[in-house]
């Protein structure tokens, strides 16, 4: 009995001990969950396997949802190519346009506000964090290094 409750801690393999235990717990618990939830379903008279429903809410906003993910991928891809400030100004504006929706696409005042918001927020945050606080931001072709003053505008 005592031997069963013993785990050999060997230097070269001890990194595997805890992950292995965790995976076993996950497998066993997973089976228990399937049994418990399956039994509850059977009791309620529902079929055990139903065709999975769409995970999205009904009539979800396809443009905003997929547009948001696509814009994020584009934003992150360009960050360390172009540099933080310029990329962010562009994308804060684009996100504003996306979230504003199609009905405001031709609204000039909305776009003007978007431009002001993106310019002011990005430039102030970039200067505050990157230049004043000296926090490393993504740099790229539009980053300005002023070596003599020790200033970087990302």
């Amino acid at each position: 009995m005592a031997e069963l409750l013993r785990i050999n801690v060997v230097h070269s393999t001890q990194h595997k001990i805890f992950p292995t235990i965790t995976i076993w717990i996950l497998v066993i618990l997973g089976i228990i969950i399937l049994l418990v939830e399956g039994r509850a379903k059977a009791k309620a008279g529902k079929p055990l396997f139903t065709k999975p429903k769409s995970i999205f809410v009904e009539n979800y906003d396809k443009l905003k949802f997929w547009g948001c993910i696509a814009l994020m991928v584009a934003y992150f891809s360009l960050l360390d190519v172009i540099g933080f400030t310029v990329t962010s100004i562009l994308f804060v504006y684009l996100f504003n346009t996306l979230f504003g929706g199609l009905d405001r696409l031709k609204n000039k005042k909305y776009h003007l506000n978007s431009i002001i918001i993106s310019l002011v927020s990005v430039i102030s945050i970039s200067l505050l964090f990157g230049t004043v606080f000296d926090i490393t931001l993504p740099d790229g072709i539009c980053t300005i290094w002023i070596k003599s003053l020790g200033i970087t505008i990302f």
Partner: peptide
Amino acid sequence: QERLYPVVLMMCTLGAYATLNG
């Protein structure tokens, strides 16, 4: 919200990038 989320996202990105010195 549509005005705030873009700025929030930009700040989150900055924070994530700086977590381990960039």
